[in-house]
């Protein structure tokens, strides 16, 4: 008789903050249930407080893996994007979060990992090993990444230059990238604010792009970042021209 093949949790040997930071992290029943509760509460809170409008929902891919990218001006951004996806994907959605902001202290790291399912990435000195691990995770686990290619929240509310790291994640891969434009988040909760004000939020979802033929080198990464920035700016212009109420 052939023996069974066991697949222990990939993070079996990690503890505490190391485990929260690891890309190998795997969660079980409790965190899945906690995320379901969190997802319901978050959606209810958005519905009551911000009454979000979602334009172009039909552009969302039917199956993971895919990647949502957007302009970044508020902590609400990732929550808003995560809450517009169906609850059945709650364990697959991973906002990619700066490790210096979210994975420094035990409590925030636990919350980011356990509830938000965030993946830690270094803002400075990111190793190519980390990025290839992320690419691997995305394709193999059928994950959904939420990424803000600006790298940090815009302090003015304007869209900033997209960093080329996004290109390194998607160049020559078949994973679709969905550009989104978020409006109202800066007004509701700018980086300087502690609490969010009840302004209406809008998400405009664009058509998914695939960069399978893009070269996996510096020039290719830059081109991808510029292309995605243009897409988000176009969505913003379209929205500014006609989509606004």
């Amino acid at each position: 008789m052939k023996g069974w093949e066991f697949q222990p949790a990939r993070d079996l040997n990690l503890t505490g903050i190391e485990r929260w930071r690891s890309l190998q992290r795997e969660h079980g029943l409790f965190s899945s249930v906690a995320r379901l509760v969190w997802w319901f509460l978050l959606r209810a809170a958005f519905y009551v407080w911000h009454r979000p409008v979602i334009i172009g929902r039909e552009h969302l891919p039917l199956q993971p893996p895919f990647m949502l990218i957007a302009n970044h001006s508020s902590h609400l951004d990732a929550l808003l994007l995560a809450s517009l996806l169906p609850a059945k994907w709650r364990d697959k959605v991973s906002p990619v979060a700066a490790s210096d902001t979210f994975f420094d202290k035990h409590a925030t790291a636990a919350f980011a990992a356990w509830i938000l399912n965030a993946l830690a990435i270094r803002r400075r000195g990111v190793r190519s090993h980390d990025l290839s691990e992320m690419r691997d995770h995305l394709a193999r686990q059928g994950a959904i990444f939420i990424i803000f290619p600006e790298g940090t929240r815009s302090r003015s509310g304007e869209i900033q230059t997209f960093k080329s790291g996004i290109g390194r994640l998607v160049a020559a891969s078949s994973v679709p990238v969905v550009p989104c434009y978020l409006d109202g988040c800066f007004r509701a909760c700018p980086p300087s604010a502690r609490y969010s004000k009840p302004f209406r939020l809008t998400v405009k979802i664009g058509k998914p792009l695939v960069f399978q033929n893009a070269p996996d080198n510096r020039a290719g990464w830059d081109a991808i970042a510029q292309r995605l920035q243009r897409e988000v700016e176009c969505l913003a212009e379209e929205y500014g021209a006609g989509g606004k109420e």
Binding site: F6, Q7, P8, A9, L12, E26, G28, L29, S32
Partner: peptide
């Protein structure tokens, strides 16, 4: 049970975990 489940990989079967709980 959680330790056993994580070691054997059965923790990925959320419904079985739920029944055990």
């Amino acid at each position: 049970f959680r330790e056993f489940a994580r070691a054997t990989g059965i923790f990925r079967e959320k419904l079985i975990g739920l029944s055990a709980v």
